[in-house]
Design a protein around this nucleic acid. Structure first.
Lengths: 228, 228
DNA sequence: TAATAATGATAGTAAAACTATCATTTAATT
DNA sequence: AATTAAATGATAGTTTTACTATCATTATTA
């Protein structure tokens, strides 16, 4: 079986679809690589152009600016992750088990067992951890939101919230808990790597510890009021 | 009684102490105002200079760049907040009550009952919500951390973690829970204002709802294992 | 009152963040 | 195979940002 699932992203994210050409795909692939290496602040289209032997101007034909490229990359991640969530949870019957699986997916880098990904997904996960909030923490948020650019994030969040509600119908904050878990999964990683006094997570077993922390957090919170 | 508590911040945050002169204080005060208005990305020292009738060059004598100014502002906030926590919790005996008070402080803008603050503290709180993570999400994190620039944040986090441990000695993740609560307090506000589908918090009673969400989260989590 | 420090005024540089133009290569259509 | 259209490359140029440097002027302090 050699099916290629391709993720269609909102057309407002780009000027020319990067999936549609070799150059576009290189911009995506090496964009991830270079944002990872340089950080968003030092990353420029000029530098990316040099790396992939094209010009600044050519890259500008695909993306309005580097923030849009970041948003595209992050959105790709949200979309793929939601797909993974649906795929993984699909044949499970137990809600608790589903939630555990979701937390597992959130705390580890993307799984490529289907062999879909031809870029550095460790780098992508690192970018998600350290740059993703910059995708929405900007003055363009409201405009971007009107253009539905954050839909994949919201969809993912909502899917998790639905599981929480399924687990405990009387819980009042399923969406807030979902977004908290998603965000916490990321910054606990970041803190473990850079500001260890803000976390109890150690470098060894980083993923598992975060997973354990979040599982405990979620199930304690959801059980508390169960049946009340 | 007319005491002026002044917060001494790490000297590596600035080139010349902004507290020490009228110009420095204007940079701080109107820096908050303008970052709030323009967002960090569009904010420049040139624009700030025009606003306060000084020159770009003069501002550069106080701060290396706008990120340092942001870090200074955010650090000021962490320090003041820790002071508030200590002050407010001081004469309480019940740990649960202390924790509730801390969550209350985290979810509301800074209290100026002492009349210490002569700048827009609503704007400061908004900046903390939408810009503070940019203070550490950069490639300079590790260097900044070596210079102890995040100490106030860590101290605050630690103080909260200690309360959590006091409440339940067997809880394994007090620091992670503390940083999660701090961060969640901010982005739940942000989501309520800009991406409402990521939260259950409404615009009315925003602060109280976030407070209720976090109290429930914290106490459920801490109670779960109590006595285990 | 002299010395010192802070600020203002001005200028300048390097890089970032774009936009524009036109030639050339590649791909699609007839 | 010839024609046309689309994508890319090459080059150049503009505006803004993010600084640094210099020197004159205005406050402070000794």
């Amino acid at each position: 079986m050699d099916l290629k699932i391709s993720i269609r992203l909102n057309e407002k994210l780009f000027l020319r679809d990067p999936e549609s050409s070799d150059l576009g795909q290189r911009i995506f692939k090496y964009g991830i690589e270079m944002i990872h290496k340089l950080g968003l602040e030092s990353f420029t289209f000029k530098k990316l152009g040099e790396e992939i032997h094209t010009t600044e101007a050519s890259i500008y034909r695909y993306f309005e600016n580097k923030h849009r490229l970041l948003l595209y990359i992050i959105t790709w991640y949200w979309s793929y992750l939601e797909y993974q969530v649906v795929f993984n949870v699909n044949n499970m019957t137990d809600t608790e088990e589903k939630i555990r699986r979701v937390i597992d997916l959130l705390t580890h880098e993307l799984d490529d067992s289907l062999g879909q990904i031809d870029f550095n997904h460790k780098a992508l996960y690192d970018i998600v951890i350290s740059e993703s909030s910059k995708a929405y923490l900007s003055k363009e948020v409201d405009n971007n939101n009107s253009d539905h650019l954050f839909k994949p994030y919201k969809d993912l969040c909502n899917r998790i919230a639905v599981l929480f509600s399924e687990y405990n119908q009387s819980y009042a904050y399923p969406h807030s808990l979902a977004s908290t878990v998603i965000e916490a999964a990321h910054f606990q990683h970041y803190f473990a790597q850079h500001l260890p006094r803000l976390t109890d997570v150690r470098n060894q077993n980083e993923d598992q510890t975060i997973q354990a922390f979040l599982e405990h957090l979620v199930f304690s919170t959801l059980r508390e009021q169960k049946g009340v």
